[in-house]
Every structure is written in structure tokens, then in C-alpha cells.
Design a protein around this nucleic acid. Structure first.
Lengths: 148, 148
DNA sequence: GCCCCATACTGGAATCATTCCAGAAAACGC
DNA sequence: GCGTTTTCTGGAATGATTCCAGTATGGGGC
């Protein structure tokens, strides 16, 4: 219960009500970084017995909104969520199977890169996604140009 | 018709049949970079009279597959297509309205960045997306944290 | 210049992730 | 404990995209 009571504190600090679903979502993401909403739903059903899809989406959204979760959305794949939110790290995505791995950012805070021309935009963050093949997919190699 | 006959050559060079839909798709994207599939459908209906949605998706896919188009998929927005394919430029996306602008890459060829740790991945390209607010949205400012 | 076959296109239904909605249940300040 | 506000439930709806079966068309071969 240690991590649960810590999560409880985190929720209160951010001004969110402490609910079973929210605690379970946070717990589900411990040790399962980069889970999709569907992964979380399945995890919670195994854990709590039953939860509505909507409750999970609501929780993921509110937790993301207060900065307890970070959402990443690799092109062509459903959104994934992670608890690592303190730094400005990046991601490596396998164009074969969609596997995601974290990549440290050498700068550590956003935006870590700055565009040559801004076109008048107020740049807030630079999202870097490395695409390639994970070790497993490199073996049974997937032809290039399938990035989606 | 100059650009049309050039496009015809491009299609043949890549081993694609020359069809009205494909030529029209290429034409539609001239001067309308970063169009969505839906934009293209509308453009083609105004141009050719009628086209099936599927024909447009098929064309966009095959043109992308042979490297005549590049697809970009900003998180939370439908895919967009552009004809600028020779270099490895990046994009700036407005988190308010979804507007997209090109940003030159200082390196020019992929991958222009290299991850600190590769986790055994064979890295092929580094996709950089700058998020921020376009001039228009900066005016009637959209609160932060809405990046999706 | 015509025929044939692989490839494209049509229209309509299906899929997937996500959101909308209205009502029931739970959180927590008092 | 009580009431208000927020959250959760279940089901229907949405938007982008894909699947499918049938028809049409491009272009290499004759």
C-alpha cells in the first residue's frame, strides 16, 4: 500500500479527487510504461473486476492534464501513457511492431531543440521520435517505408 | 499542362500507372502542402467531378510508398500529405488549430539526430515536431497543456 | 490498333480509437 | 450524515481509415 498512499498524496496535491479508478490507473502504469488505453482497461478489469472504458479515458485525461502522466501518440498507433514525467525525454518507436523505448534527452528540458525559422510560432516543445526496428523485428526484417 | 506531364513522368519513373486520380492528387497538393485526405477528396471533387474516398486513400498510399509524397501525422490530428520529399525537413504544429509549417533541418538527411542509447534498435530516422502556437492562436491565446 | 490481365476505382459496410450523452454512484467540505 | 460536485456506467455516436466484392481502365503484347 505504500505506493498507493503515495499516489493518493500525488492526486490530492494536484487537486484531483482520490478514486479507485485513478489509483488503479497509476498502479497499472507502474512497471508497464507505454501502455495504451486498452492495456489499462484490461489491466483494471483484472485488478478491480470491472471498469467502464470511459472511466479509464477520463482518468487518463485528467491525470495527463495535471501532469501525473504523459501521453505519446506515435503515428499510426493508439496513444500510449507513461508515468515518467519529470524530464523531457524522447522515444524510439519500432516501425515493425510499434514497441516503444525511452531515450534520454541530453538537454532535459523543453524545448530542447530550436527551429531554424519559427514562422511566427511561439515554440513550446520539441518532440523527437526516433523510428527504426527493434531487435526482434530486425531479425525477421520488415521492409523499409512502412512507417505508419 | 506542363506540371501534369512532369507528374506523368514521375509516376512512370516510379513504376506506377498514370491515372486521372493520381495526377489530380499530385496537382491538388501543389500549392496546398499539408492537406488531409479529406482536403484532397474535396479538391478532387471540385476538379474531376467525382472520386471515391477509397481512390484517394489508395493514391495517397501508393504515392507515399514510392516516395512521391510524404505523410505526417501530428498527434491528435488526421494525417497530412506533402510533396516536399527530397530533404529531411521537420514540422511545426500549432496546438491550437493544428496548422502546420515546414522547418528546415540543419543536417538535411535522416537520421539527423542520434539517440544517446539505442536499446538495440536500428535507428532509421529522427522525426522532430515542434509544438507551439501559431501567430493567430497566440492572439486569442489557447491555454497550455492542450497538446492533442 | 485491339486484347487481356494486372491494377485501379466505385460504393458500401466494417473497424478502431476515442468521445458524447444521460443517468447513477461516489468523494469530500461542512 | 448531507448535499453538491465530480466521477463512473453503459450505450450510442463520431471521425479517420480500411476492408471487400464487383466494375472499369491502363498499357504491354500481338
Amino acid at each position: 500500500m505504500t505506493s498507493t498512499s503515495t499516489d493518493e498524496t500525488l492526486l490530492r496535491e494536484r487537486g484531483l479527487r482520490v478514486t479507485g479508478v485513478r489509483l488503479a490507473v497509476l498502479r497499472a502504469l507502474d512497471g508497464h510504461e507505454h501502455s495504451t488505453a486498452d492495456d489499462v482497461v484490461r489491466s483494471l478489469r483484472a485488478d478491480l473486476g470491472s471498469v467502464s472504458v470511459q472511466a479509464v479515458y477520463d482518468s487518463l485525461h485528467s491525470l495527463t492534464a495535471v501532469g501525473l502522466l504523459r501521453r505519446l501518440e506515435p503515428a499510426g498507433h493508439p496513444a500510449r501513457y507513461e508515468r515518467r514525467v519529470g524530464d523531457n525525454h524522447h522515444h524510439m518507436v519500432c516501425r515493425g511492431c510499434g514497441a516503444v523505448a525511452d531515450v534520454d534527452c541530453t538537454v532535459g528540458e523543453a524545448p530542447c531543440l530550436h527551429p531554424v525559422t519559427t514562422h511566427g510560432f511561439a515554440v513550446e516543445l520539441a518532440e523527437v521520435t526516433f523510428w527504426g526496428l527493434c531487435p526482434r523485428c530486425t531479425a525477421g526484417s520488415v521492409p523499409a517505408g512502412t512507417h505508419s
